[in-house]
């Protein structure tokens, strides 16, 4: 394990194709390999891996969207307010970001390409579908679905009353899920917009991630890691979730991470610890047993060989899973 102590609050912990990257509340982007860039004059509010897999794209409260690599940094866009959300689509090379009620799309291969999609209410989160062609924007009253490249269009509204704060597509593209301000998930089957309410959470759901070849969706927001079955025509509709790694009621899972192709689930807890588990297994592998500030960011790399996390107090780590489990 490699440990880091940052003097700022982490916003994101990600893996680009070379290794772990942290984006922080002081506006800096710090690579686990040691490089550091002051990307923003202010806090990093959101981050995503660049579609190329090289470096990360961050949005800041300075109104800038910045692409930071180990050896270079470039401002991709500037807005008047804050850049609240960012998402990237490796398949199509598109980057989406939002500021206030507008979600915008950029194309890494075409500097002149830009789409601006207006919403009635503030956009809280963005996600591309697995092919990178459609963009979902979580907002008040549901999620808006846009064709990412089309200039003039009316979005398809997946409606559900309330404030939607996070959004994700299932890896097979059949379902769209949002996390809501009041501790529940909502899901839609895209083929017929049939929707499902997925509740019972004791805490805010910040993360959704997919594992086991897309057959399971994991979320934070409960005492253990929550797993919803996605296989079958109806996905989680009519199914119950299972909770793994629950020790008791003392702490909650604040972050989850997994890789769609693999079977591991990593979870970060409000008490600062991090575990790794296999849904079928019966034990937790502690990746970090030090208690402290809540885990606020967590990621697993694509081949499920490594996990990185960061705590609110600036403590962070990167761990190789093979050595951690052995």
């Amino acid at each position: 394990m490699t440990a880091f102590t940052f003097d700022a609050q982490p916003t994101a912990a990600l893996f680009d194709r070379q290794g772990a990257v942290f984006a922080l509340g002081d506006g800096s982007v710090r690579f686990a390999s040691g490089e550091r860039t002051e990307a923003h004059d202010g806090a990093v509010l959101c981050a995503a891996v660049h579609p190329s897999g090289d470096g990360i794209v961050t949005g800041g409260d300075d109104g800038k969207l910045v692409w930071t690599r180990r050896d270079a940094a470039a401002v991709l866009a500037t807005v008047k307010g804050w850049v609240d959300a960012v998402a990237a689509a490796p398949g199509t090379g598109l980057i989406a970001f939002s500021s206030g009620r507008t979600a915008s799309v950029l194309d890494v291969k075409d500097d002149l390409f830009r789409r601006d999609f207006a919403h009635e209410r503030t956009v809280a989160a963005l996600a591309f579908d697995p092919k990178g062609r459609r963009l979902a924007a979580a907002t008040y009253g549901g999620a808006a679905l846009w064709f990412a490249r089309i200039e003039s269009q009316k979005p398809t509204m997946m409606k559900w009353a309330g404030s939607h704060t996070a959004v994700a597509f299932a890896p097979d593209g059949r379902f769209l899920f949002t996390a809501m301000q009041d501790n529940q998930l909502h899901g839609w089957r895209l083929s017929d917009a049939k929707d499902m309410r997925m509740g019972g959470y004791p805490a805010r759901i910040r993360d959704m991630s997919f594992l086991a070849k897309g057959r399971l969706m994991a979320t934070s927001g409960a005492h253990g890691g929550v797993l919803w079955p996605l296989s079958g025509a109806n996905g989680p509709m009519g199914q119950s979730a299972i909770e793994i790694g629950r020790e008791g009621d003392d702490t909650v899972v604040t972050a989850v991470a997994s890789s769609p192709a693999h079977g591991y689930l990593a979870a970060g807890l409000a008490d600062g610890r991090v575990w790794l588990a296999e849904p079928a297994g019966d034990r937790l592998n502690w990746l970090s047993e030090d208690r402290g500030a809540p885990v606020v960011a967590l990621s697993m790399n694509a081949d499920a060989s490594s996990v990185c996390w960061a705590r609110e107090d600036g403590e962070a780590g990167v761990v190789d899973l093979q050595s951690a489990i052995a």
Binding site: F6, Q9, D61
Partner: peptide
């Protein structure tokens, strides 16, 4: 967002 500026 403001809270992200908070240093440990």
């Amino acid at each position: 967002g403001l809270m992200k500026r908070q240093r440990p």
